[in-house]
């Protein structure tokens, strides 16, 4: 299955999802993109550059280290792998793939979506999407 097909299939299972992208944080580029309108592409291109500040930022890593030192996280825990952002009328879900830690799958949903279900379905699609790269 091609990456675009995998993203499209994933979108169909995630409630109120209208855009999906596959991001390489190392380059800040979109490796795959599916969306209902041209605005999606612009938004995903912007987010492809921005999201590394959250996943790979020094401050976020410092927090992860603090959690490890405090014993609330095991030493070998991979750190934050999922980010959900609620803003305006949208829910953005970013999931880091296990196979390629610099790669992130992004789904954009309307805020009418059931957040829990959107996250669960996003998780369930991750392996298939990563395998399509």
């Amino acid at each position: 299955m091609s990456l675009d097909s995998a993203l499209k299939t994933a979108m169909e299972t995630i409630p109120d999802c209208f855009a999906a992208g596959y991001i390489d944080m190392e380059t800040g580029m979109l490796l795959g993109l599916q969306g209902e309108d041209p605005e999606c592409e612009t938004a995903l291109e912007t987010l492809a550059v921005a999201v590394a500040s959250l996943f790979q930022g020094q401050g976020i890593r410092a927090f992860e280290d603090m959690l490890r030192k405090a014993g609330t996280v095991s030493d070998d825990a991979p750190g934050f792998g999922e980010i959900a952002i609620f803003a305006a009328d949208r829910l953005h879900v970013f999931l880091r793939t296990q196979a390629y830690p610099d790669h992130v799958v992004c789904y954009i949903c309307r805020d009418s979506a059931n957040a829990g279900l959107a996250l669960t379905k996003s998780h369930m699609s991750l392996r298939t999407v990563a395998a399509a790269v």
């Binding site: 921005a50 999201v51 500040s53 959250l54 020094q58 991979p78 792998g81 305006a88 296990q98």
Partner: peptide, 26 residues
């Protein structure tokens, strides 16, 4: 500094107010 970089880069796509939830991989 991370959040300032995030704001600079994401301003065209995500506005304030915003809720960012960071969760562990598993």
């Amino acid at each position: 500094s991370d959040l300032a970089a995030w704001d600079t880069d994401s301003a065209d796509a995500i506005s304030h107010p915003q809720l960012i939830v960071l969760r562990p991989s598993g």
